[in-house]
Structure formats: structure tokens, C-alpha cells
Design a protein around this nucleic acid. Structure first.
Lengths: 242, 242
DNA sequence: TACATTTAAATGTCTGACAATTTAAACGCA
DNA sequence: TGCGTTTAAATTGTCAGACATTTAAATGTA
């Protein structure tokens, strides 16, 4: 873990980077304990608050975890799937909300990625994931549902679809794409008719996966994409009239 | 921006969360200046170092940037694509390296995602992205190339393929999938024969995109996936003999 | 042995100070 | 007045030292 010469950037950022490099390069392995804050301060010739700021940076990225008490300290953290999901989702959500991404572009990306899952999902869907999809479809048909709950159920349905592919890396990658769309979808007011149409598409997708018909599932997804696009465009048109 | 009651978790983590919530919920908008550290310390009734640790957590996630001097301070940062790419890549790389993901699973996810891009790429590929792909193919044919350089060029080729789809959100999502594979691919020793085979697949893909033949591109990608899989399996078999 | 107590090591937090940096305002000068 | 220079103020970056809190090992005791 090397030192920092006469770089004039923030010391805490430099130190964080040095430790991060040590982790990604394998010099520090999972569950290994880092030197104590005092030792790190000594090693880098800085004060303890500066070291602490560096460690907090790493903690924010789930690269380390800290434990108080004797024989506590900072440990290299095994990045778990849930943590990775979470980071993926917040990053994707922020990227979309802060960069004026058009509904069309986000929608296209999302459905393209979901279509990538259907061949695998048709092969590997389990009774479990199918049941989840059916349950969400049923919920989406309930009359009293708010738009937000409908959206949340929509997300749950699509996550089940993605998980059906039985590939955790794929699930991780798509978590951001699916979840980050929710704020955009939440702007849509779902009429009884549009809900009915969406439930219809969902049913077709679930049926196709049940019978392992990847092609039918893709077709239904593509039609759902086109339909979602028209809904989104209506909202955008209503938002920016004139 | 609300306070924290009698939660006994780290104060800096709680404060970071409070500010993050304010950002994602839109209470704080892009380029808006946060209160000074002293004011935040006062507001949350903690000391300045504690506030600073919270701010460093947010800075590590590119949620804020800081500026020194009078009228400096912490500002809500617009998450740019390059930053998002970077986070995506480091997270995906760590997830793969720390969780004993099998080569097969990672490979499957990557090619499934890339296949999702081909229909769009066939429609929208530009002379620019095609030229990049051709250039990388040419480089991959050079004799003196090290295995690492070959890998890097392979990544560049696939990124060009993804970028051909002309959808920045899709490019962002796939950055992790493509780049995170590189450490795994780097374990492979590419013989002259395997390089020739890979260049052949790449050429077929580029040709297919040139002539807007999405189906041919998908077929070539699928065959490349199968071929990569055999290479990876050979390495894994050699690694864990007995 | 089993349980309670002590102790030591580490992180979490606070206080107060100074350094470095940057901008706006004040000032001086033609 | 107009413009360049200086000064002052605000803010983050860093440091030193201290105390509080937590945790597990070591120790003592019945």
C-alpha cells in the first residue's frame, strides 16, 4: 500500500484510493483486517480524522465494514448481491433522474435487456417464479389499487421475469434497469383500460414462459414495450403542451 | 432534512442518509449548495468532523462535490455518464471477483446482454462505431500482441458493439457486464489458433452489422459465446486438476 | 468448571485550533 | 470614473489531543 508523493488533491481521497487499489488488486483479501486507524495515520503520515474520512469513503461503497471494540477495526467486505443490487439501483435511478433521459430511451433499454432474459427464462423458469408472476398479475387486476401500487407490482412482475432466467449476474445487471424506470413509470396515470391491457400482456408473457415458448414471450414483451411507449408519450405530451 | 431520533447507529451514516434522501427526493436539486459544514453540524447537533465524515460518504458516491474557499462548499453533483460507468464497472468487477462467480454464469450473462443490443446496433450502427470495431479486429490480428492487450482490445470491440446500439442507457448498463469479464478473460492464454477463431467471429459480427443483418450478428455472437465457454472451461479444468 | 469482573484495544465523537484556498469587497491610483 | 491591487472574510482541509463507548479477551472467584 504505497504512499502519496506531492499530489495536492485531498489526502483522504488519495488514501481511500490507495486502500481501494489494494483491495481490488487482491493485496487485501475478503475479511482481512486493515491496520487500525492509528496505524494507518502513522503509515500515511496524516492525522486520524483524515484516515477516518478515507475509511468512510470506502464504507460508503461497501468496500469495508467497521466493528467497534477490542479486536475490532475495518475489514474488507465481501460485496454481497443485495448490496450490489442496491448500489446498482441508486446509481441508475440518479443517472436517469439527473440527466433528462427521455422516456423513450430508458424504455428501449429496459425492454431490450428484458428480452435478453426471455430465452433463458423460458428454459429455466421455476414454479416459484411463475407463481410470483401470477400473483402480481392477480394483484394488478384488483380494482382499488393506487397507481403507485400498480407500478410497484409491475416492477415486481418484471423482476420475477428477470429472475426466471436463473442467472444471478443477469439479475444483478437488470435490477438497475427495471427499478430505475419506476420513477418514470410513476408519472403515468393508469386508466382502467390501460391496466387491463397491461395485465393482458403480462398474462401472455407468463403463459409463454409456462409453455417454454421464448418466441411468444419476446413478441408479447415487444408489444408491451410499444404500448408502454404510447402511454409515456401521452404523459410527456400532456406535460409539455403548447 | 429531518433529524435523527435516538437511533444508535453511526451518526455520520445517519446524516449521510438524511442528506442523500433529500437529494434523491428532489428537496436538493443539482448544483444547489448545501449548508456549510458548521451549519450542518449545528443543524444536526453534532461536531464538524462527524459532518465531514458524512459528506465524504456522499462524495464517494459522486452525490456531491466540494469546493474550497469563500462561497465554496458542498454542491449537489450531477451524476455524469462517465462517473456512472466507473461505479458500475468497479461494483460489477468486485461482485464477480469476490463471490466465486463461475465463468459460465458470467459469460452467459454477458452474451445474453450483448445479444440484446444487436437488433438496435444493426439499425443504428454508424461509420464511426464500425471503424472502431474494424480497427480493434485489425489489432487483434497483430502477431506480437500480449494476452492482456488482446483482452483489452476484445473489451474495446465489444464496447463498440454495445455503443453501436446508440442508446446511452444501454451502454451504461452493459459497461459493467463487459468490463467486469476482463479479469476472468485475462486468465485465458490465447493461442494463435484461438485468436484466429475469435477474430473470425468478430469479423462476422462486424460484417453482419455493416449489412444491417441483426440475425447473422446474433448467430455469430452465440457461436462466439460457445467458443469462449470452451476456452474458459479449459482454463478452469487446468486450474483445478485432480 | 462456570460465572462475574477487570482490562485493553479499537472505533465513535467532541473541542479547538490552524492552514490553504477562493471570492468579494475595499482600497489606491491614474 | 475606471481599473488593478490588496485585504478581508468565508469555507473546506488538516491536525492534535482528549474522552466516550463498545467489545472481547484475560483474570479472578466461588
Amino acid at each position: 500500500m504505497k504512499i502519496d508523493p506531492d499530489n495536492k488533491a485531498d489526502l483522504s481521497a488519495q488514501i481511500a484510493e490507495a486502500i481501494r487499489d489494494a483491495i481490488v488488486s487482491g493485496q487485501l483479501i475478503v475479511d482481512e483486517r486493515l491496520p487500525s486507524e492509528a496505524e494507518l495515520a502513522d503509515h500515511f503520515a496524516v492525522s486520524r480524522p483524515t484516515v477516518r474520512e478515507a475509511l468512510k469513503r470506502l464504507a460508503a461503497q461497501s468496500l469495508i465494514r467497521t466493528q467497534r471494540g477490542a479486536f475490532g477495526g475495518a475489514f474488507v467486505n465481501r460485496l454481497s448481491y443485495p448490496e450490489a443490487y442496491g448500489q446498482q439501483i441508486t446509481t441508475a435511478t440518479l443517472l436517469l433522474s439527473m440527466n433528462a433521459i427521455s422516456f423513450d430511451v430508458a424504455c428501449e433499454a429496459r425492454y431490450a435487456l428484458e428480452r435478453a432474459c426471455t430465452p433463458l427464462a423460458a428454459l429455466r423458469r421455476t414454479p416459484d417464479t411463475l407463481a410470483t408472476m401470477r400473483a402480481e398479475i392477480h394483484r394488478q387486476g384488483q380494482p382499488g389499487l393506487t397507481d403507485e401500487s400498480f407500478c410497484a407490482s409491475d416492477v415486481a412482475f418484471h423482476r420475477a421475469l428477470v429472475d426466471s432466467a436463473g442467472n444471478p449476474v443477469l439479475s444483478y445487471q437488470l435490477a438497475g434497469a427495471v427499478e430505475a424506470m419506476q420513477p418514470l413509470m410513476n408519472m403515468i396515470t393508469f386508466t382502467a383500460r390501460s391496466r387491463e391491457a397491461i395485465v393482458g400482456f403480462h398474462t401472455r408473457i407468463a403463459d409463454a414462459l409456462s409453455s417454454s415458448d421464448a418466441e411468444a414471450a419476446q413478441t408479447a414483451l415487444t408489444e408491451l414495450e410499444a404500448y408502454t411507449l404510447t402511454l409515456g408519450r401521452d404523459v410527456m405530451a400532456a406535460r409539455a403542451p403548447k
